[in-house]
Computed example of a mutant assay.
Amino acid sequence: MKLAITGSSGLLGSTLTGMAEERGVPAHSLDRGALTAMGLVAAREQLRTLGADTLVHCAANTDVEWCEQNAQACMRDNVGLTEFLLNVCAPLGIKFVFISSTGIYGNYQDRPFTDHDAVHPTTVHHASKWQAEQVVMALNAAPLVVRTGWLFGGAASMKKNFVANRIREARGCGGTMQSDQSQWGNPTYTLDLAHHLLRFIEAGLVGTFNCVNAGPATRFDYVSRIVALAGEQVEVQPTPAAHFKRVAKVSHNEAAVCSKLEQFGLYDMPDWQESLAAYMKTLVKELDNE
């Protein structure tokens, strides 16, 4: 196995790259801007030279609010780039692994979504991920789509580190902070997800699969647990979604179960609270040294 990884500076991509290196799996970081700038033929030659047999596409525009107001640019970033990379991979026979979102299912039920539930995205961002999924399944000979969500992990310095940002908020809030009591999801540790991705690739898995940590939670549950584990004496107040005045009509339910992975005997993700506690043992120390 020899990997090429886009988005290797992000939460998941950096974790996956580091884990692959620790396990002796060759992993090359791909700069999406440089690849598209060089054009299809040159990009294909670069990947041929690297000798990668699998491309894991972690890079994406994940700013849901920005995407809602910049739909064309969002589609270029999340669909156009994916199609470009698929065309790079196609004649080389490279397996394509696409990281999607459990947010694509939509807003039509309250129970966690299974892999077989219908997809009805409610935002531009999630519509772009759904379109990209369809392109992957149509154009790659051995496609793997992994739907995940509410990722946490990585260095405290990363801009999109949700857990680190909530701890900073708690330390500067003056004693109270607010969190959405109505939105559900599965907080998912990048270390757990990266471990599963490597297992999937080794097993030759193809198809579309949910992959999240066990146990649904509201944003309020999640933030409350972060604050408690950080030892901050802060009251987290459950707050209705309308208070946050979001532009994007994000689904109230992004929670999922991994029924297909369980059926295939490939699922052993821990409960999210267990993984969050393990992650925060090192994260809080990082924050204390800022």
Rank of each mutant, 00 (worst) to 15 (best):
G207V: 06
L55M: 12
L193Y: 11
Y279S: 09
V236S: 02
F113D: 04
Y108F: 13
P216D: 10
Q134I: 00
A278H: 14
C67Y: 13
I94C: 08
T49Q: 15
L55N: 08
V79H: 07
L191R: 15
S275N: 11
G18K: 11
L276F: 13
W150Y: 13
R76W: 07
S224C: 11
N87R: 14
Q72F: 14
E274Y: 09
A241Y: 14
A141S: 11
G185K: 02
F152V: 04
A34I: 09
E133S: 07
K281G: 11
V227R: 03
A43L: 03
S182N: 10
A37I: 06
V247Q: 10
T49I: 09
K285P: 00
K129D: 01
E290R: 04
F98T: 04
S259D: 15
D180P: 09
A43K: 01
H252M: 06
V227C: 07
E232S: 10
T190V: 15
I167P: 00
L81F: 14
L144Q: 04
E235R: 13
A90T: 01
M269A: 14
F200C: 05
Y108H: 14
H126Q: 13
L35I: 06
W130I: 00
V56E: 08
H120N: 10
A43I: 03
E202R: 07
L276Y: 12
I99W: 00
